Simulated assay, not measured.
Amino acid sequence: MKKIKMGMVGLGRLGIQHAENIAFRVPQAELTAVCALEEDKINEVQENWGVPYGYTEYDEMIQNEELDAVFLCSPSSLHCDQIEKALDAGLHVLSEKPLGTTVEECKVAEKAVEKHPDLVFMLAFMRRYDPSYVYAKKMIDEGKVGKPFLYRGYSQDPESAIDGTLEYLAHSGGEFIDMAVHDIDAARWLLDSEPKQAWAIGGCYAYPQFAEYDDGDNVSALMKFENDAMGFLFAGRTAPHGYNVETEIIGTEGILRIGSVPQKNLVEILDQDGVRKECSQDFLERFDQAYVDELQEFVDCIIEDRKPDITVYDGTKNTKIAYDLTGSFQENKLIDIE
């Protein structure tokens, strides 16, 4: 069986997890090359996992004729340029979210994808591949909740991770593009509609450093969709209990809730402090299987010569909506989304 030889770009916290999934958890994939700025990380992965090639220059890596595809987990502002270069080099591309940090960047990626219809391009919005979200989507499509008319999404990072968040602030693009974009995509997907109006609010309730970038440490938005459905999302950086992603879909005939009580597993602890459940502490733990399943879908698309359901245009729409919400937040006003 032919394996898809992949190059991993970026070996940060998420990148190293993606690299491990390529190397060990998807049988049809092979980790052939890694690329990062940190030579010590490259050397460690090569030595420990037997990866043949290591690069500190992306342009050099994509000239490796052994590669079939690349997985981009680089800084968000580099995605679109790297997507274009990889596709022009004849490589399939799986890119982490967001597609780009500006709509102009996203348009560059759109043209690159359109130029290479024979290649697979896929965006890694992992909730679309999480077993619980996949099941909820199936129930909605089968009419099990009637007509869905409200999406409610909470996405909260643990306050224990705030130091890393503050270090990344200058490059994040803001909380709507960096974090709430997952709920934007999930709402569009689950409601099967596009938002047409929105009002975003929030503030710096615990960390004034966010204000230096016209951002907030906790933000929210209310959206009205073209099919008249409502959407509410909340994104925060200061959860005291752990990593918390919670989604609710309300329909005319039923309600779906995903992760309404955030928990690490099904274990309950009974001790001198009472009865409690532990929470996942980061996205790697909560969406572990989703990251594997999205990679499997990408590999299957290449092998089966088909395209994934999520497109480059979804990436552009998610980025545009996120920046529209950022503008609403900064200007404190209701906006129309074109």
Score class of each variant (00 low, 15 high):
K277P: 00
P195N: 07
I321T: 08
V93I: 05
F210G: 05
H182T: 09
P158F: 00
A200C: 13
G54W: 01
R237A: 04
D300R: 06
L266D: 15
D314A: 00
P98R: 01
L72M: 12
D192R: 13
E104K: 12
L78I: 07
D163R: 14
D183M: 13
S328V: 02
V299R: 00
D215H: 04
T101E: 11
S328P: 03
V145Y: 04
L11S: 04
L78T: 13
S328Q: 02
D163L: 12
L325S: 04
L67F: 04
K137N: 12
A161N: 12
G153W: 06
V134G: 00
S155M: 11
K307E: 10
L67Y: 02
E142T: 09
P195Q: 06
I83G: 05
N265D: 15
H241L: 14
V9R: 01
L94K: 00
P52G: 07
G90P: 12
L72H: 06
I162Y: 03
M223Q: 05
C80H: 09
I250Q: 13
C80I: 08
V219R: 00
E65I: 04
F176M: 08
R128I: 00
E110L: 14
T238W: 02
S132Y: 10
A112P: 06
P158T: 14
G259K: 07
E167H: 15
G174Y: 01
A161Q: 13
Y205N: 13
F24Q: 11
V108I: 14
R237F: 08
C279H: 07
Q289A: 10
Y58M: 08
Q209N: 13
G259D: 08
F232W: 12
A180L: 15
H79F: 03
W49R: 09
R306W: 02
A229V: 05
